[in-house]
Amino acid sequence: MENQTIISAQGVNFWYGDYHALRDISLDMEAHTVTAFIGPSGCGKSTFLRLLNRMNDLVDGARLEGRILIEGEDIYARGVMVDELRKRVGMVFQKPNPFPKTIFENIAYGLRVNGVRDKAFIESRVEESLKGAALWGEVKDKLKKPAFELSGGQQQRLCIARALAVQPSILLMDEPASALDPISTSKIEELIYELKTEYTIVIVTHNMQQAARVSDRTAFFYLGELIEYDETKKIFLNPEKAQTQNYITGRFG
């Protein structure tokens, strides 16, 4: 399934009330790749990420124009069930946000709310998900312990495991390592390399080196516009646009 577009944004404009947060964004992302969104705070990169699983739906005054297709389907079309969409498009946030439950229940929760009752199936899926998030070895003997007893880095990988449990095809990550120390950060990055064989990953990061290390393609946003979108190697060796170069070399403003 190489080179197959899985996410396609077409002429996306987005407003928070009067504020025009995204201007005419069009970009395609391929399956089994990692795409990094970079840009200064307020540039619209997180807003755009959140549009990909309709996290902005409940924001007051939010208005979208244009189309976002995921696996060929317009996710803002009438009749699309948001919880069905979010099964396909998982999300991991900046701060680890496990539920105040046991490690096991954190993973099992998503399955249960989706109506899974088969205990053996849930157990095997919990194990698979924890393995997928490279956490199984560290927690397999304490699945009944509260998730909050884990370290920050472990909690973040637990949140990744929780997202994997419902078998999404896309994982959105909003600065997943910004609250973590370098060791935990490098574990998350290693995990991203492994996960991309099965999932398509979109990551927002303020850490330029992280974007360079983990992503195949990089999109640079500025003032709500997509300034440049290209192979990460190209962006970090020879970007087309002066604005991109000024941003990644730290000469901005």
Binding site: A212, F236, L237, N238, T244, Q245, I248, T249
Partner: peptide, 9 residues
């Protein structure tokens, strides 16, 4: 300084 782009070149 982890130079990139023009600085790296």
């Amino acid at each position: 300084f982890n130079p990139v782009a023009v600085d790296l070149r």
